[in-house]
Amino acid sequence: MVSGSEQSVAADVGAVRAIVEGVDDPELPHVTIGDLGMVRDVEVLPDGRVIATLTPTYSGCPATEQIRDDVAAALDAAGLDARVEFVLSPPWTTDWITPSGHSKLRAAGIAPPHTAGAGHETRIDLPVACPRCNSRRTRRLGDFGSTACKAPFVCESCREPFELFKAL
């Protein structure tokens, strides 16, 4: 996160985008909204005002309002006059999660999603490797985990429970 300094008002769009993308997801604090591919556009207007455009993940994700506030606060702390907007279309997909996001999820004990692809097919039945020991001997315990985006699993090899980030 870029710390606030008054001359950052004239910051270039890349630096502003880095601030937005560096905001943590409230429900997955080990990944940022940049890792999740939620940042659609960051625009710096000629007068220095910023418009950050994000896409919500799930329709009912309760973190959406929190993310809006967190992004606004991060830009405000950097001395920027910003507006945060959400766009529904094109719909967010887990295919937008970055490779770095996949690594961070795995490090946090969450199996990253399979490729969702163009069809609206649910891919929950594909083999899932344990994020801890990499074993494929894993078993699904339910369709929905602590959040709608995840499903609970247990690894039959190392016996650890973990969650799968479901393809969407």
């Binding site: 329709s59 279309s89 649910t122 929950i124 369709d143 929905f144």
Partner: peptide, 18 residues
């Protein structure tokens, strides 16, 4: 409505499966 549907259709696939 098309944009709302594009999100909802993916979520609903999981509901129906369940």
């Amino acid at each position: 409505l098309a944009a709302i549907a594009a999100k909802a259709v993916k979520e609903t696939a999981y509901h129906l499966r369940h």
